[in-house]
Simulated assay, not measured.
Amino acid sequence: MSLLKTENVIMQFGGVVAVNDLNIDIKKGELAALIGPNGAGKTTAFNVITGVYTPTKGKVLFTPTDKKTGQTTEIDITGKKPDKITGLGIARTFQNIRLFKELTVLENALVATHTNVDYNFLSAILRTPKARKGERRAKSDCEFLLERLGLIDLKNEKASSLPYGQQRHLEIARALATNPQLLLLDEPAAGMNPQETDELTDLIFKLKTDFDLSIFMIEHHMDLVMEISDHIYVLDFGCTIAKGTPDEVQNNPKVIEAYLGVDEDVEN
């Protein structure tokens, strides 16, 4: 079953077409990757999906499952505000880490739980029993996430004091605190050393399984992509030049050309 689809999406900035006729189809339970050279339009595609940009043309369709009834409904999320899209069940991380550096690890996770609370602002101010119960549940849920991501012993530390790799883990924990059905990861291994990348590879696969997540990621570390992806889309200059399984993609001549170039002597 399709969870997220884009239909003929075009994102144009003036005379520059950053994304051209993008058609992706992320299945429920799938781990898909979006790859391509720098400037290929990958983050722009993520920004269209998450409502940062409204596409010039095309549609973005999301089909979440109601966790109470089990029913699914296809929703046109094209141009919806990012907070509305998050509330529907899509969370993301960013290429450049965007933590609240002066807040603690636990507070960073708690910030994201506002999408799931069942009490209002006035109840929180008045400290009603319902609000206090909701706050306790949110704290418990966040501590559970921090435990799963190896951060529970650091919950009272400022986010700015964490090593780079742990800051990446915290950003993922904060995204998970929104209780998503689809998690978008924008270059989660960026800046990591080989050991941290191996640990992240294991973590992403485990999160997909343990939290029943569908994951769509942008990544330049091909070992990571090829090891855990079910399906891969390849962009170059905003256009999809290949899609398929890891084996199909890494042997595709167009992908090899986009990454390595073509020897002009060979062409001639």
Rank of each mutant, 00 (worst) to 15 (best):
S2L: 02
S2A: 11
E7F: 02
M11V: 10
M11S: 04
V17H: 02
V19S: 08
V19G: 05
I26C: 03
I26M: 01
K28Q: 13
G29C: 05
E30V: 04
L34G: 06
I35V: 14
P37S: 10
P37I: 11
G41F: 05
K42N: 03
T44R: 07
F46P: 06
N47C: 11
V48A: 04
G51Q: 08
Y53P: 01
T54M: 03
P55F: 13
T56M: 05
K57N: 07
L61I: 15
L61K: 07
T65M: 11
Q71D: 14
T72E: 15
T73N: 14
I75T: 12
T78C: 05
T78A: 07
K81F: 04
P82G: 06
I85Y: 11
T86M: 14
T86A: 15
G87Y: 00
G89K: 04
I90P: 09
I90E: 08
A91R: 00
R92I: 11
F94R: 09
F94H: 10
I97C: 04
L99I: 02
L103A: 03
N108R: 08
N108V: 05
T113P: 00
N116P: 00
V117S: 12
Y119H: 13
A124V: 06
L126N: 02
R136T: 12
R137A: 15
K139V: 04
L145G: 13
L146D: 07
L146P: 12
L151D: 10
D153W: 00
L154Y: 12
L154H: 09
K158A: 01
S161N: 14
Y164C: 07
G165C: 11
G165H: 07
Q167Y: 02
Q167D: 07
E171Y: 03
I172T: 10
A173E: 06
A175S: 14
L176C: 08
A177S: 13
A177G: 12
T178Q: 09
L182S: 10
D186T: 04
A189H: 06
T197C: 08
E199W: 03
D210G: 04
F211W: 06
L213H: 07
I218R: 06
S229F: 04
S229D: 07
D230S: 03
H231T: 11
I232P: 04
I232T: 09
Y233Q: 06
F237A: 14
T240C: 13
T240V: 13
P246V: 05
E248P: 03
Q250T: 10
N252D: 15
E257R: 07
E257W: 01
A258Y: 01
G261L: 11
D263G: 01
D263L: 02
D263C: 00
D265S: 10
V266W: 05
V266M: 03
N268A: 14
